[in-house]
Simulated assay, not measured.
Amino acid sequence: MKNFFFVTCLALLLSSCYSVERNCKDFQIGTFEFTYEINGETKTGKSVRTDSLSIDYYDSKIDTFTIRWVNECEFVGRKLHPIDFVDSKPIQMKIISTKDNTYLLEYSLLEDPKTKKRGTVTKIK
């Protein structure tokens, strides 16, 4: 029992020293570059984001999303001109951590945790 108490205290002490950097305000507006995968091929896209719009350039396409910030680190995007019902579903995006000019992003269709993915985004402007 003594060993269990000691190990628990040590684990709590070590985990309390680690904090994830999240300077989300720095990444709300700007021009960003991201990588994504289609059929096993990694590609690069670009996104230009204002406080209420995101214009995404990827795979020879351009999509415009309206965005609504839920808090400093999370926003919901909805296509401005969806082509069908599935395309009209909102996407939830959450900044998990930041470092220098990059951030780790977790995204999924709103309220659909089965579609959750992660990616790294770099701010270029």
Score class of each variant (00 low, 15 high):
residue 8 T to K: 01
residue 35 T to M: 11
residue 19 S to E: 15
residue 18 Y to I: 12
residue 42 T to P: 07
residue 84 D to E: 12
residue 48 V to I: 14
residue 50 T to C: 12
residue 49 R to M: 10
residue 87 D to C: 05
residue 38 I to H: 06
residue 110 L to C: 06
residue 76 V to S: 08
residue 66 T to C: 06
residue 100 D to H: 13
residue 113 P to L: 02
residue 5 F to Y: 07
residue 41 E to W: 12
residue 37 E to A: 00
residue 80 L to D: 01
residue 13 L to Y: 13
residue 21 E to N: 11
residue 30 G to V: 01
residue 92 Q to V: 00
residue 58 Y to V: 04
residue 124 I to T: 13
residue 107 Y to D: 03
residue 121 V to K: 00
residue 96 I to V: 15
residue 14 L to D: 09
residue 16 S to R: 02
residue 9 C to D: 01
residue 84 D to P: 03
residue 58 Y to W: 13
residue 1 M to W: 05
residue 97 S to M: 11
residue 32 F to E: 00
residue 119 G to Y: 12
residue 64 T to K: 13
residue 17 C to F: 09
residue 6 F to S: 08
residue 121 V to D: 00
residue 51 D to T: 14
residue 73 C to R: 01
residue 100 D to K: 15
residue 16 S to D: 15
residue 95 I to A: 00
residue 90 P to W: 05
residue 92 Q to Y: 06
residue 2 K to W: 07
residue 46 K to G: 07
residue 107 Y to S: 09
residue 93 M to A: 05
residue 2 K to R: 13
residue 31 T to A: 14
residue 24 C to F: 02
residue 12 L to I: 10
residue 122 T to C: 08
residue 62 I to L: 09
residue 59 D to A: 07
residue 10 L to K: 02
residue 101 N to D: 02
residue 102 T to A: 11
residue 118 R to Y: 15
residue 79 K to G: 02
residue 54 S to N: 14
residue 8 T to L: 15
residue 57 Y to K: 07
residue 30 G to K: 03
residue 12 L to Y: 10
residue 118 R to T: 11
residue 46 K to T: 12
